[in-house]
Amino acid sequence: MFGLFKSKSEIEKLQLKYEKLMKEWHRLSTINRSKSDQIYAEAQEVMNKIEALKQ
């Protein structure tokens, strides 16, 4: 309840975006391989940003 209005950190926002992209990547992996590869590349960019912020 008290954390209801707590804003998320940049890392938390990026982690949520990464998880969303990975779910989309997995869903597309059997449907559209080229789109799946594009989504995976985006997810890797987000992961690189997360790693850079952690250091």
Rank of each mutant, 00 (worst) to 15 (best):
K17I: 05
E51Q: 13
L28E: 06
I39V: 12
A43E: 05
Q38T: 07
S36A: 12
D37A: 14
K49N: 11
H26N: 14
I39W: 10
L16T: 00
V46Q: 03
K23C: 05
G3F: 10
E10M: 14
I39N: 00
I39P: 01
L4G: 11
A52Y: 13
F5H: 01
K8F: 02
A41N: 07
M1D: 04
H26K: 15
G3L: 13
D37C: 12
K49D: 07
T30P: 04
Q55V: 05
I50C: 02
L16C: 08
E45I: 09
I31M: 15
K8P: 02
Q15D: 11
K8Q: 10
K8T: 00
H26I: 06
S7E: 13
L21E: 01
N32D: 15
E42M: 13
T30N: 09
E51A: 13
N32C: 12
E19V: 02
A41W: 12
Y40L: 15
L14P: 03
F5G: 01
E24G: 02
Q38A: 14
A41P: 04
N48H: 14
K8Y: 08
T30D: 07
M47I: 03
E10R: 10
F5R: 00
E10Q: 13
R33V: 09
S7T: 06
L14Y: 07
L21P: 00
V46H: 10
R27K: 15
E12H: 02
K35I: 06
L16N: 10
E51M: 14
E10A: 04
Q15E: 12
A43M: 05
M22L: 15
S36Y: 06
R33M: 14
L21I: 00
Y18G: 02
D37G: 10
G3M: 06
L21G: 05
A52N: 12
L4S: 11
L4D: 04
E10G: 05
K6D: 04
Q55L: 11
K20L: 11
L28H: 02
Q55E: 12
Y18M: 09
E45Y: 12
E19T: 03
H26G: 09
H26S: 13
E10V: 07
G3Q: 09
S7A: 11
Q38N: 13
E24S: 04
I39H: 01
R27T: 07
F5C: 00
M47R: 13
K6L: 01
D37I: 05
K23R: 13
Q55G: 05
Y40E: 02
R33P: 08
E19S: 12
Q44D: 10
R33I: 08
F2K: 07
L16I: 02
S9Q: 11
W25S: 05
K20T: 00
S36K: 03
S34K: 12
E45G: 04
I11R: 08
S7K: 15
K8N: 03
E42A: 03
Q44H: 08
E24V: 01
K49Y: 08
K13H: 07
E10L: 12
L21D: 01
K8D: 01
H26E: 15
Y18V: 03
V46G: 06
K54M: 07
S7D: 13
A43Y: 06
K8L: 01
K8M: 07
G3T: 00
K35S: 14
A43D: 09
L28P: 03
K20G: 06
A41T: 04
E19Q: 11
E12R: 04
K35D: 11
G3S: 10
N32P: 04
F2Y: 08
K23W: 11
S7I: 04
I31H: 11
G3R: 11
E42N: 08
D37P: 07
L28V: 03
